[in-house]
């Protein structure tokens, strides 16, 4: 593992993605699920920045990363609002409680 190699960054990104996915799939607490999503987004960000650094030399990837951060903030805001609404309705933030649509 060397800081000069692309693969080390990608590895960290993959680990982060795996952790995020794991969190999203296994946690039933809505806040945790949101946190998992944040991890997934950040793993993508690492990939963007790494590829940007080691390839052509323009900074398009890094700019995309900033976009994603911004988007993640917005997503977190909307997501928390939804969670709040669900909590108000169901008095829990267990994602499996909100299964009424199928009936």
């Amino acid at each position: 593992m060397s800081p000069n190699e692309l693969s080390s960054y990608l590895t960290i990104g993959a680990i982060l993605f795996g952790l995020g996915l794991f969190t999203v799939l296994t946690r039933r607490n809505a806040i945790s699920v949101l946190m998992g999503v944040e991890l997934i987004l950040n793993s993508a960000n690492i990939n963007y920045v790494a590829f940007s650094h080691f390839s052509s030399g323009n900074s398009a990837g890094q700019i995309y990363a900033i976009f994603v951060i911004m988007l993640a903030a917005a997503e977190a805001a909307v997501g928390l609002a939804i969670v709040l609404a669900i909590f108000k309705l169901f008095h829990t933030i267990d994602v499996e409680a909100a299964e009424t649509m199928k009936d």
């Binding site: 999203v24 799939l25 039933r28 699920v33 994602v95 499996e96 909100a98 299964e99 009424t100 649509m101 199928k102």
Partner: peptide
């Protein structure tokens, strides 16, 4: 409609 459970985990799977 049965498919639309509302269970986010399910969707993700």
């Amino acid at each position: 409609r049965r498919l639309q459970t509302g269970n986010i985990n399910g969707y993700l799977y």
